[in-house]
């Protein structure tokens, strides 16, 4: 793994777009995490991981305003956590 850079494939700031953007970057992170589990000394992979985490932070904040990702992200004035759509519903995808 050498000098990879994450190229976002999606744009948009509505809830569905933000979800899609988060899914994309989280998939990159998941794949990198599994790689790092197996190759924890790979400095390039670790750099890539750090760049992904940095890119994710802004995305998470934006998505959390529409719909919390985890119970730690319900930043709005309402308890949005229980509001539709749920992840398995077509409307959320």
């Amino acid at each position: 793994m050498t000098n990879r850079r994450f190229a976002p494939a999606f744009s948009g700031n509505d809830q569905a777009s933000l979800t899609r953007r988060l899914q994309a970057i989280d998939f990159a992170i998941q794949d990198t995490v599994l790689y790092l589990d197996a190759y924890p000394d790979d400095a390039d992979a670790l750099d890539y991981y750090r760049s992904l985490i940095e890119a994710r932070a802004g995305l998470l904040a934006a998505r959390s305003k529409e719909m919390p990702l985890t119970v730690y992200d319900n930043t709005g004035t309402d308890w949005d956590w229980v509001k539709a759509p749920w992840p398995w519903q077509p409307e959320a995808n």
Partner: peptide, 15 residues
Amino acid sequence: WTYDRKLQYPVKIKT
């Protein structure tokens, strides 16, 4: 574990 309120990969089936 903590639940992420999103699918890992989208599922959107019409039929």
